[in-house]
């Protein structure tokens, strides 16, 4: 028994390379799973692409002003895509797997719980960035000209990656809190109002005044401001933007942890 005890403690802490490989496999499996899940990949990618194409063709104007509008929409629909990828992927995915007992089986295994969460985050990041690149590629088609320089594209991808994190946290809370089976319906009730009121569909300036003042409290608004900043739409403090998103992330993760502990105690 003592000997096997020693062997056990050796296995208790898998070395960092095997742990890294484990995370890698978990991320890969999550990504493959989501790619093959057409309900997800079609809606997560399809929604922003179709909305972007629609709004871009409605607002197609010649001249420099038209280019500015097109750039505005490219930034805000990239955010729209990232928010959807995180909410559908993590929120819905987790609600499904938790509700049907799959998460429980995973928890009964020696899988590090963090690997599960990191895989979900990584998968939605891949979707967010893919959607963003897709919109960048579609931009010239709908507006007839190059919309972003290579440098701007890199900056936009960076903002999209960072901005996905607070919405991944929101997805986590959503996935932990919704009753089993009601995920798909409820997630749209969160996604669409947040996007519209935050100015991801039409510029916030076009919304009624009361909505505009309300928008300033939404993470979607500040996410889009950060993305718009890349294309020279300044006028808002980047610092406030990052501050709001960081605050949302911390608060949402904190509530998630609490919800998790409560549900575990009741389980």
């Amino acid at each position: 028994m003592p000997l096997s005890g020693v062997a056990d403690s050796l296995h208790a802490g898998p070395n960092s390379r095997t742990l890294l490989a484990l995370y890698g496999r978990e991320i890969r499996a999550e990504l493959v799973k989501m790619l093959r899940n057409r309900a997800y990949s079609f809606s997560a990618v399809g929604f922003p692409v179709i909305f972007y194409l629609l709004f871009s063709s409605i607002n197609r104007h010649p001249g420099p002003e038209g280019r500015e509008t097109a750039r505005y929409l490219l930034a805000s629909y990239s955010c729209f895509g990232a928010v959807g990828a995180a909410l559908f992927g993590i929120g819905n995915g987790l609600a499904y797997e938790r509700g049907h007992g799959w998460l429980e089986l995973k928890r009964a295994s020696p899988m590090p719980p963090m690997a599960y969460l990191v895989a979900k985050l990584a998968s939605s990041l891949v979707f967010s960035l893919t959607i963003c690149l897709l919109l960048v590629a579609l931009g010239p088609l709908v507006s007839g000209r190059m919309l972003a320089s290579p440098g701007e594209i890199v900056d936009l991808l960076g903002v999209v990656a960072v901005g996905t994190i607070p919405f991944a946290s929101l997805g986590l809370l959503f996935g932990l809190a919704v009753p089993p089976g009601s995920g798909p319906g409820l997630v749209n009730l969160l996604y669409l109002p947040l996007s519209f009121c935050g100015g991801l569909w039409v510029p916030v300036e076009l919304l009624p005044k009361w909505m505009q003042s309300f928008a300033q409290y939404l993470p979607t608004f500040w996410f889009s401001r950060l993305a718009l900043h890349v294309f020279g739409f300044t006028g808002y403090s980047m610092l406030v933007g990052y501050g709001v998103l960081a605050t949302y992330t911390v608060v949402l993760l904190g509530i998630s942890a609490r919800v998790w502990r409560v549900s575990e105690a009741r389980a």
């Binding site: 490989a21 797997e97 049907h100 007992g101 089986l105 295994s109």
Partner: peptide
């Protein structure tokens, strides 16, 4: 837990992974 395997009552599990992919993932734990 590395000494334990469990078969629990799971209502549904991810359907878009292959049988071997599911097993490989658990082997890795």
């Amino acid at each position: 837990r590395t000494h334990v395997g469990a078969m629990l009552q799971v209502g549904r599990m991810p359907e878009s992974l292959r049988v071997c992919e599911h097993i490989e993932l658990f082997r890795g734990y």
